[in-house]
Write a protein that binds this DNA or RNA. Structure first.
Length: 424
RNA sequence: GGAGAAAUGGCAGAGUGGUCGAAUGCGGCAGUCUUGAAAACUGUUGAGGGUCACACCUCCGGGGGUUCGAAUCCCUCUUUCUCCGCCA
């Protein structure tokens, strides 16, 4: 959520940024917001002066009672009746206007960074880096869902029976490989200075709002209506919300956290060939990295996160590329996002396996995540996060790219985590 | 699940209807002293709104109520602690 004061004072910048996102009715939205803000402040001022007056009278009454002048006190009491009426009405108006303003602010996405390319869809994303050799596979190489069946390591039908589509069961070496990857990712993240945490997999409404899933992506999360809790779509939500309503000291920066969690996504409206096998699931595992940074250091941090993910992919020996998302494809809350994609030879397509973003103050404003700066003023911090990494597509990429006629060769770095070198 | 107690500023902890945004201590920051540091002393130190700046307004777990006036009284929710029971 952008700060109203920022919108008020930087209207042109905001409009320009929203234009890059191809946001329809941006002008109207911004105008309405500014008007609602003005009205809110005007009502607030009126209310404040009425409250000031009645506070004063109350104090006077106190004095009069003390000095025994009950008669005079009774007269003053009469005066407050009218003030009370007025303040009641104004309080109600203020509440309504504040809600209206809040609703409007929820509709305005983050302002993209200068270097975010213009564009309307994923076609316009900019490839900024590419690395790794695409292996030449043997005749008869299979997509991962065939491999999963052949070696009996992932069972989609069984998951379908237990729960439904998109909830696979990992079996035998498949389960072990999955666990190996999780441990490997966590270890890599820890080595890089990320502090490991285990967090709840269900979150409350305030947390969903804090990181921006609510109210924007309400329908994407599984919701337990009985207790009003949401299954997390990513560890970003519980981990970042560690810092909700927190005022940090400046020397507490930088903050680096990593967590492994399952992720739950309803993925309403996603069907077709591209969601086969592991490509799109309702439940999947992910290791996430989250950072809270000083505003002057957040882009440096973003680069460091990108480099960190690069190193992991290098070690896994996977061919990948990095995209800078364009204005039309970048997430609602993000100012700059880099997507990592692994090339799947057997599917002949790129699979998104990581998304690394800087949210600047957008989340921090919702979270009320601030720090005391060197002038002693409170200032919003910057938040960032990225996947390091999402399991299923890494798994898909590994299975497909590492397949040989003899079986699936486990990358060197994973062998000590798996305890085996080949799936056959 | 049953019984009881509690929730106040970074922390500890006072405050049971007016002069309380809140004593005191610790911590933090600044200064004096010192070659420097420690100690001691002095000052300062919550958040949000509002203003050019003041004024002013709101906030004592959340919500509601009583009252001219609520940290203080009432209702309700949440959370924590203690004891008992049950269970991993």
């Amino acid at each position: 959520m952008l700060q109203v004061a920022y919108i008020r004072e930087n209207k042109e910048t905001v409009l320009k940024g929203l234009a890059k996102r191809n946001l329809k009715n941006a002008d109207e939205l911004v105008e309405k917001t500014i008007t609602a803000d003005e009205e809110r402040r005007s009502i607030q001022t009126q209310l404040d002066s009425i409250l000031a007056e009645s506070n004063k009278i109350s104090k006077d009454i106190g004095q009069l009672f003390k000095s025994g002048e009950r008669q005079k006190a009774e007269i003053l009491k009469q005066k407050t009746v009218q003030l009370k009426e007025q303040s009641k009405i104004l309080t109600e108006n203020l509440q309504n206007k504040a809600n209206e303003l809040q609703e409007l602010l929820y509709l305005i996405p983050n302002i993209p960074n200068e270097i975010v390319p213009a564009g309307s869809s994923e076609e316009d994303n900019l490839t900024v880096f590419e690395e790794g050799k695409v292996p030449v596979l043997y005749q008869g190489a299979l997509p991962h869902w065939e491999l999963a069946k052949k070696y009996d390591i992932i069972d989609f039908e069984l998951g379908n029976k237990i729960t439904g589509a998109g909830f696979p069961v990992y079996k035998g070496k498949g389960a072990k490989l999955q666990r190996a990857l999780i441990n490997y990712f966590l270890d890599k993240n820890s080595e890089a200075g990320y502090n490991e945490v285990q967090v709840p997999h269900l979150v409350n409404e305030a947390s969903g709002i804090g990181t921006g899933q609510l109210p924007d992506k309400e329908g994407q999360m599984y919701h337990d209506a009985q207790d009003n809790l949401y299954l997390i779509p990513t560890a970003e939500v519980p981990v970042t919300n560690i810092f909700r309503d927190v005022i940090l000291k400046e020397d507490e920066f930088p903050i680096l956290k990593t967590a492994y969690t399952p992720c739950f996504r309803r993925e309403a409206g996603s069907y077709g060939a591209h969601v086969r096998g592991l490509n799109r699931l309702h439940q999947f595992d992910k290791v996430e990295i989250v950072r809270v940074e000083h505003p002057t250091k957040s882009y440096e941090a973003l680069d460091s996160m990108v480099n960190h993910v690069k190193e992991i992919l290098r070690e896994l020996n996977l061919p990948y590329r990095i995209l800078r998302l364009c204005g039309g494809d970048i997430g609602f809350t993000s100012a700059l996002t880099y997507d990592f994609e692994v090339f799947s030879t057997a599917q002949d397509r790129w699979l998104e396996i990581s998304s690394v973003s800087n949210f600047e103050t957008f989340q921090a404003n919702r979270l009320k995540l601030r720090f005391k700066n060197s002038d002693g003023k409170t200032e919003l911090a910057h938040t960032l996060n990225g996947s390091s990494l999402a399991l299923p597509r890494v798994m898909a990429g590994l299975l497909e790219n590492c397949q040989t006629p003899e079986g699936i060769k486990i990358p060197e770095v994973l062998v000590k985590y798996c305890g085996f070198e080949i799936i056959n």
